[in-house]
Amino acid sequence: MSNQPPYPPQQPGWGNGGQQPYGQPPFQPQPPKKRSVGKVVGLGCLGIVGLFVVIVIIVAAVGGGSSNNDSSGSPKSAAPAGKSSDKAADDTKKNDTKKDATDGKAVFKVWGTAPAGALGGLDIGYGSDSDMRKGTFKDGRFEATLTLDKHALYYDVHAQLQGSGDINCSVTVDGKTKKGHASGGYNICNAQLSSNFTGGWS
């Protein structure tokens, strides 16, 4: 038998060694906070209603901008029937036909009076920066057409008088035209259209 005194029985509780200090109640954990279900549902409903209102406003604004009705609610007619609408249609048809005739083409013209001089008749050159040609002036005019090259930097026509005369010249590319004029002596009529960054001609 051991002479050591027996250990006192341990009390359940808190503290060092599982012992509860005297005079203090045991520590109680705080209960979890309850979430307010009503607030969450209310905010969710408010958000949905707000979104619906915004959509209705956007639809009304877009629909109102493209409305074709007058203040009485009756639809507006597109154009009054009669001679004015027929004339507009005819003008559009003529413009389309004119554009189609020169679409994808370069047209060069020289016209006027140009008597032959000591060096011969009127000296004409036409074409692009990579394809220049010689033209012949006959019966007071010259005209030539080339297929448009999309890589060309410019199209040009020039005509030099041989001592006297009065001439005009023009170059037309995709419906755009530039003109020139020369009179007397050895002056040169020149017209040129250059390609620009937008794919057009100026």
Rank of each mutant, 00 (worst) to 15 (best):
G104T: 12
Q24A: 08
P12C: 00
K176M: 11
K105D: 13
V173D: 11
C169W: 08
Y126K: 14
H181F: 13
V54C: 13
K76V: 05
K33C: 01
S84V: 07
V56N: 13
V171T: 04
L146R: 12
L146G: 11
E143R: 05
N168Q: 15
K105G: 05
I167E: 07
K178C: 04
G104V: 12
G64D: 09
F52V: 15
V107A: 14
L122Y: 00
N95W: 02
V40L: 03
P5S: 07
P21V: 06
P5A: 09
K99C: 04
R133F: 04
V157P: 09
K98F: 01
V37P: 00
Q28E: 14
N168W: 07
C169E: 10
T172Y: 10
F52H: 09
Q192M: 14
R133V: 01
K178P: 00
A60D: 10
S2F: 05
Q24N: 07
S66L: 04
K179N: 11
L153S: 13
G17A: 12
N187S: 15
G163D: 06
S77P: 04
Q19P: 02
A101Q: 13
S194E: 14
L46V: 14
M132E: 11
A114S: 08
Q11G: 04
G13E: 03
T177G: 07
V53P: 08
D166M: 04
L148H: 13
T113D: 13
G120D: 10
G23R: 08
K134R: 03
K87I: 06
V110C: 02
Y154T: 03
K138N: 10
S84M: 07
Q10T: 06
G64R: 10
S128V: 09
L122H: 03
T177S: 11
C169M: 09
S164N: 12
S202P: 04
Y7V: 14
S194P: 03
G199S: 08
G64E: 09
P31F: 00
F108C: 09
V54S: 13
T102C: 03
S67Q: 02
I48G: 13
L161P: 01
W201D: 15
Y126L: 12
G50M: 14
V41P: 01
L46Y: 06
G38T: 05
G180K: 08
V54R: 08
T102E: 12
Q192Y: 00
A79R: 02
P25H: 00
Q10R: 07
T136P: 01
V62P: 02
A144K: 13
A101F: 03
P32W: 01
Q19K: 05
P32K: 01
D139G: 03
Y126P: 10
T198S: 13
D100H: 07
P26A: 01
S77W: 00
K109N: 04
Y154V: 02
P29V: 05
K138D: 11
K98I: 01
A152P: 12
R141D: 05
V107Q: 14
A79S: 07
C45E: 02
A89M: 10
I55N: 14
S164W: 02
A191D: 11
P12R: 05
N95D: 14
A101E: 15
T172C: 10
S71C: 00
P115T: 05
K93W: 03
I188Y: 01
T147N: 15
Y155W: 15
N95C: 02
A152K: 10
G184L: 11
G65R: 13
D156R: 14
S85K: 10
S195P: 01
G47A: 15
S85M: 10
V54L: 15
I167M: 08
I48A: 15
G82L: 06
L193N: 08
